[in-house]
Design a protein around this nucleic acid. Structure first.
Length: 510
RNA sequence: GCCGCGUUCGUCUAAGGGCUAGGACACCACCCUUUCACGGUGGUGAUACGGGUUCGAAUCCCGUACGCGGUACCA
């Protein structure tokens, strides 16, 4: 019997959730669901100086919007809680102390200034950033370099200390990564990472290992930026005696800026005019508001679809996937090794495709709220649905529905008369007056019959339909855009159509 | 500097020793449409470089270049 798959997303609550974060969640989620496993949300809030109120709730809401609800979380609870690391503080100390007792870690009493001067002292052109490692540890103030009594005394005096892992001087550690294959590291090249901080909180390194073990995580997927510290984690699993329980690892490629170099940051979004966060993020410290994909008019389905394909594909030419299809097709070994540049144009294309493929009915709530924000009530569901059906093919973002459909709800104000004025004449005016009379008594109020009647009238007046169609459109819509003229007429109704023709004739006269 | 990871059209990618290196976004042209879109057809455009191995290399090996990540009592 194989173990039940359990994966986790472990963000630190320091701000908005950006693209890379959501994609990490997504791959975790897809994997978990594919294997009918559990998806856990764990909050890594061990750095009290970076904690931002509201960030955790924001993350939870993002997951909800994306349709990736955790099976276990601080909010939902679960059998392996608490799920907030700050609430598990005592657990970590136990294991850190255990490691010290077993000679696999040690107390270090160095003050920040001392660390600073060590770095200065050993800094050379060849080694610009000296580490606290096997080469210098005996010259520092720790339980390895100090006599045992001295260590005892310092501890008894309540001297602040940290616990550092003792990295072997020269051992090879092999990591089996689901995406990259075997990666090897030399332990002597890594520093003696702090495991337990002076404030009693664990660092990430200790906390991930302890929690992944205690929470029975079977697969650990995280960003590529963690690859260099993987040997420390591997060693910790071994030191703690849990090697056989160690999860399988996968280090996900980064999402890069569209231009230039480096990983995508919030700054790039601000600079290039696209969102980087899933939803609007309001920073309580600065008061700054950062726009999100949701508020920008993205459908969660499109957002997820786009992210899934950024660094992964199923080997076919299919690009549009529902969440269920992704769950069925996803495989970690088809995830790319290299980072992917984010392309907002492609992201918009996904959204456009999703708007087109969704039923008008299903878009009603979202479009209504877009319209409501602009002061259009749109209370009639059936009517709104028909409007959406007519315009959705020309909307890339949900927010586009406003510009594409206001004229279904409000009589256009200032018409683009310049578009027809040059060719305007009294014959055309006469035609529209007659058209009004025709509509007044017309009974077959549907697009086909309306069009036939309209064209018949044009023929009687010796006019080509094209000559009067554009003026008619301008009267109805206000400009040169929108769905078919008779679809609009059919929908807005007799009274409104006649009203708009009369208003149009009025504005054209001036 | 050191360590690790990468590198196919501008961008996302397919092709894991064997067709003219395929698709998508974007861009351009044409068609459809008497609007704007949708849609359709076609086009421009890539294996970083240098060596091997092989009948044959985008694919395997070595080197170089370039990029990214890490090098914190941050995650």
């Amino acid at each position: 019997m194989t173990k039940k798959v359990r994966v986790r997303f472990a963000p630190s609550p320091t701000g908005g959730l950006h693209l890379g974060g959501v994609r990490t969640v997504l791959y975790n989620y897809l994997f978990a669901k594919q294997y009918k496993g559990d998806f856990i949300l764990r909050i890594e809030d061990t750095d009290q100086t970076r904690y931002v109120p509201g960030a955790e709730e924001y993350i939870v809401n993002c997951l909800k919007w994306c349709g990736m609800e955790p099976d276990e979380s601080p909010q939902k609870g679960g059998p392996y809680g608490p799920y907030r690391q700050s609430e598990r503080k005592e657990i970590y100390r136990q294991y850190a102390e255990q490691l010290v007792r077993e000679g696999k870690a040690y107390y270090a009493f160095d003050r920040p200034e001392e660390l600073e001067s060590m770095r200065e002292k050993f800094k050379t052109a060849d080694n610009p950033s000296p580490q606290y490692d096997h080469r210098v540890r005996m010259q520092m103030r720790n339980s390895l370099s100090l006599p045992a009594e001295e260590t005892e005394r310092l501890l008894a005096d309540g001297t602040p200390y940290v616990i550092r892992i003792l990295m072997p001087e020269n051992e090879t550690v092999l990591l089996e990564d689901m995406i990259r294959g075997e990666v090897s590291f030399n332990t002597g090249l890594s520093d003696d990472k702090v495991l337990l901080k002076a404030d009693g909180m664990p660092t990430y390194h200790l906390a991930v290992v302890v929690d992944d073990y205690l929470m029975k995580i079977t697969h650990a997927f995280r960003g590529e930026e963690w690859l260099p510290s993987a040997p420390v984690h591997l060693l910790l699993w071994k030191y703690l005696g849990w090697e056989h329980e160690m999860p399988k690892w996968a280090h996900l490629p980064l999402i890069l800026k569209p231009d230039g170099n480096g990983k995508l940051s919030k700054r790039d979004g601000d600079r290039l005019g696209f969102p980087v966060y899933a939803m609007n993020w309001h920073d309580p410290r600065t008061g700054e508001l950062t726009r999100g994909f949701r508020e920008m008019g993205f459908l969660p389905e499109a957002f997820i679809n786009m992210l899934a394909l950024l660094g992964w594909n199923d080997g076919t030419e299919q690009e549009l996937f529902t969440m269920d299809e992704l769950i069925a097709r996803f495989s970690m070994d088809r995830v790319h090794k290299g980072g992917a540049r984010f392309d907002f144009e492609k992201a918009k294309w996904f959204n456009h495709e999703w708007i087109k493929r969704k039923d008008a009915k299903d878009l009603v709530p979202q479009v209504r709220s877009v319209l409501q924000e602009k002061g259009i009530a749109a209370t009639n569901d059936a009517y709104l649905e028909q409007v959406i059906g007519l315009v959705k093919d020309r909307c890339t973002l949900l927010t586009d529905f406003y510009g594409q459909s206001t004229f279904f709800f409000e009589t256009p104000g200032q018409l683009d008369v310049a578009a027809v004025k040059p060719k305007w004449n009294s014959e055309k005016e006469d035609f529209f007056r007659t058209a009004c009379q025709l509509f007044e008594t017309f009974h077959h109020w549907n697009p086909g019959d309306l069009e036939d009647a309209f064209k018949k009238l044009a023929a009687e007046k010796n006019m080509k339909p094209g000559e009067v169609l554009m003026p008619f459109r301008i009267m109805l819509v206000g400009g040169k855009f929108g769905p078919g003229v008779f679809d609009i007429v059919a929908l807005i109704g007799k009274k409104e159509t006649i009203k708009r023709i009369e208003q149009g004739l009025e504005q054209l006269r001036q």
